[in-house]
Write a protein that binds this DNA or RNA. Structure first.
Lengths: 230, 230
DNA sequence: GTTGAAATTAGTACGAA
DNA sequence: TTCGTACTAATTTCAAC
């Protein structure tokens, strides 16, 4: 229920159908644009803001929902007012072939708001919200340390959340640049084929990383099985 | 409009009033609980699910909105279906006394979905969503590198988003544990007073960090002025 | 894909407990 | 404060164009 979609996989929509199920046109994107800023707007008002008829808005709204382009509607809550003033990032190194266990344990931790599998030095990044700094320490040393799948952790505190956009859309880019494929020199790509298939040469540097350097690989050993493990 | 609230500051609610403006009781939390999972629920249905009258639900709903506990309602969008299949984290080291410029430049980058100021090796972490890997490279080398405030970057790709909860609430914890202050030994805190006032001793380690180690400081030089700079 | 009308539901205001 | 009810306004649905 709380699991998000895989980057490269579908999420239980129509079984057998992997790719896109709905071709999003400019109007669809416009609807998403309005909806991400005001998720409680009525469809009637939405139609007016987008510039289409109400019936059309209802049809498209329902299509976006059914297709999965809109996953859910949610309220953005002020964590500080809700009593969770401390936010931390915990970078986790996961023991190989224990991803499934790691995922299961994560689901049982209510203070975890976000978890992503990453390339680079660590294997996963989790964001937690707790009441005080001590709770972070408890979380890392007591709860995470007791998971066999967790090999090592590194914790960082979030001092300030500068920016949070309610989901980026390709239409955010100016009309001059293509949304599908921004203009660039095709020769200077660091690696083609996407990160999910990443298994290129190891370029792990120890100290300060110069501008633009990417940690593309380094902890990919246990990640190949990720696709079928969980 | 897209700026989120400071961890330790208010956000333009009632001027002069810093702390909490509304004491949240169990019913308020219950409302938030429902609303974060279904932001489009009608107040009538909300009242029924929470177990209060409609009039009461309207009053509390409005109070939560006015107080700022609910910041906004938004639609969760499937970035892959929207055409932004690549997600990356860029860790940025910011040149001292250039935070204001850094923040301003960030606002002009539509592909940035989230940016947080952190403790640890780097100063900020930004999450970007783009169409392909090449766009990440372009973003880092062309756009970020041209910001004088940016000293160094380190990029990591997100292979999978395992978990995303629509905002964690203190009520997520079981009823046995206190929401305000979880039971723990007060002596084993890594540092008291919260991370916002962080200026403790430097404990920066170079290689693999053992379990539970925290990068509490290390790049705090330019961060003290953060409170008044931007 | 659009417009317009009917049915339903949502939002407001009030007095009572 | 909270609840219940009645009133008003809006939204959603469904029809025909």
């Amino acid at each position: 229920m709380t699991e998000t979609s895989r980057n490269s996989a579908h999420e239980g929509g129509q079984p057998g159908r992997i790719g896109i199920g709905l071709e999003l046109d400019a109007t669809h994107l416009k609807i998403l644009e309005v909806l991400r800023e005001n998720g409680r707007i009525s469809v009637a008002a939405l139609a007016e803001r987008v510039g289409i008829s109400r019936a059309n808005a209802y049809t498209r709204f329902e299509a976006l929902r059914a297709d999965g382009a809109i996953k859910r509607f949610t309220a953005e809550i002020d964590h500080v007012r809700a009593g969770l003033g401390i936010t931390a990032l915990i970078f986790v190194t996961v023991r190989q072939q224990m991803w499934r266990q790691f995922r299961a344990q994560l689901a049982a931790m209510p203070e975890v708001e976000y978890c992503a599998i990453t390339t680079g030095q660590h294997d996963a990044m989790i964001q937690v919200r707790v009441t005080d700094v001590a709770a972070v320490h408890t979380m890392v040393t007591d709860r995470l340390a007791n998971i066999p799948a967790v090999k090592a952790t590194e914790t960082v505190f979030i001092l300030d959340e500068v920016l949070r956009r309610p989901y980026v859309l390709p239409s955010d880019r100016g009309p001059g640049r293509s949304a599908r494929r921004p203009a660039h020199d095709p020769a200077d790509s660091p690696g083609s084929g996407g990160p999910a298939g990443g298994s290129g040469g190891a370029r792990s540097s120890g100290g300060e990383v110069p501008l633009g350097m990417m940690r593309f690989v380094g902890a990919a050993e246990g990640r190949a099985q990720l696709q079928r493990d969980a």
